[in-house]
């Protein structure tokens, strides 16, 4: 995988596992949902990383989960970025290791400067919780190996501030660099499933290198058949498989 550092190859050749680290802020509320998928369903070693903890040396994949870090009273993710765990997450990303931000995690990654743009209030001003179709824009990333390009997957969303915004130059750079990973799909009648007014129907983006991804939809909520869909599980399964094979 281009640009992704090999992580303790020997360990993974033996154990065939990837260690997830899930950052826990006061106010995180999807941390255990992510833990259930990583540890409960995929049987991967998983550590909950308290926001004051700065040691991520044992972690392969950092996940910044959804929720309302510190209540998000100032601006979503604006305080979380200053935490010791986030400073280490930035280092983790700079070392070309994988970092995934989901929902509030995506907001935090943009605040921390790991991803461009910003997430602002939904266009209709209401919180939206639904299941929406997404188009997989590229499948050459560690995140999307298990999908085919152009595939439509259905993933839950739940956010009040999920409208992706960037200025025209930034959007152009994102598109030129092929950094849009997921887009809200267009239906047969041409209507977009875009639930929040995001620029260019953007649901998820990666950094130029591809090791950092942020997305508003919740793949961890579509990973367990009993809750109605497993379209998101492929993301995590593909991630583990790809990294172990790397």
């Amino acid at each position: 995988m281009q640009g992704i550092a090999s992580i303790d190859r020997q360990k993974h050749q033996q154990g065939i596992s990837m260690k997830f680290g899930i950052i826990v802020f006061p106010g995180s509320n999807c941390d255990r949902d992510m833990q259930w998928v990583a540890q409960g369903i995929l049987k991967q070693p998983t550590r909950m990383v308290w926001h004051e903890d700065s040691d991520l040396s044992d972690i392969d994949i950092v996940v910044v989960p959804g929720g309302f870090s510190y209540g998000d009273y100032l601006r979503c993710g604006a305080i979380a970025r200053f935490s010791p765990a986030m400073k280490s997450t930035v280092e983790h990303a700079k070392a070309s290791k994988p970092v995934l931000g989901i929902c509030n995690g995506f907001q935090i990654l943009t605040e921390a400067g790991l991803l461009p743009g910003a997430l602002v209030r939904n266009a209709n001003l209401h919180f939206v919780c639904d299941r929406v179709p997404l188009t997989v824009e590229r499948n050459d990333l560690i995140w999307t190996k298990n999908y085919s390009q152009g595939q439509t997957i259905t993933i839950p969303v739940a956010h009040g501030e999920g409208r992706y915004h960037a200025d025209d130059d930034q959007l152009k750079r994102l598109e030129d660099n092929n950094q849009v990973v997921f887009r809200y799909s267009k239906g047969e009648n041409g209507d977009s499933a875009n639930p929040n007014g995001s620029c260019n129907d953007i649901a998820g983006i990666c950094n130029e290198q591809g090791n950092v991804m942020g997305m508003m939809p919740h793949p961890e909520r579509a990973s367990d058949a009993v809750t109605g869909s497993t379209d998101g599980l492929a993301l995590f399964e593909g991630l583990v498989k790809t990294l172990v094979a790397a």
Binding site: N29, C30, R32, D33, W36, V37, G66, H126, F127, V128, C129, D130, R131, P156, A158, H218, E220, R221, S223, D224, V226, T227, G228
Partner: peptide
């Protein structure tokens, strides 16, 4: 109900 997070905790079986 679209304004309520009805899925968090990953245990909600029906919409």
């Amino acid at each position: 109900y679209r304004q309520y997070d009805h899925q968090v905790q990953n245990n909600t079986v029906f919409m």
